[in-house]
């Protein structure tokens, strides 16, 4: 029961979720840019680690 997440648990959080998704949609370009940067940073770290090993 603790792990149950249904509508009654999510609806009170709808203000938070709505704000997060709304901001993401408004600044979609920046969000995508940030995701690409994060992804490339993560991949470059992973490649660096493998080359060191």
């Amino acid at each position: 029961m603790i792990l149950y997440v249904g509508p009654d648990q999510l609806i009170p959080l709808s203000g938070v979720f709505g704000t997060i998704f709304g901001l993401a949609l408004m600044f979609w370009g920046k969000v995508l840019q940030g995701c690409r940067k994060l992804t490339s940073w993560l991949f470059s770290r992973s490649a660096e680690h493998k080359s060191q090993v």
Binding site: I11, P12, S14, G15, V16, F17, G18, T19, F21, G22, L23, A24, L25, M26
Partner: peptide, 12 residues
Amino acid sequence: LRERGVIMLSLG
């Protein structure tokens, strides 16, 4: 749905 979330998502 909470009004604030509705407004922000609508703006998005």
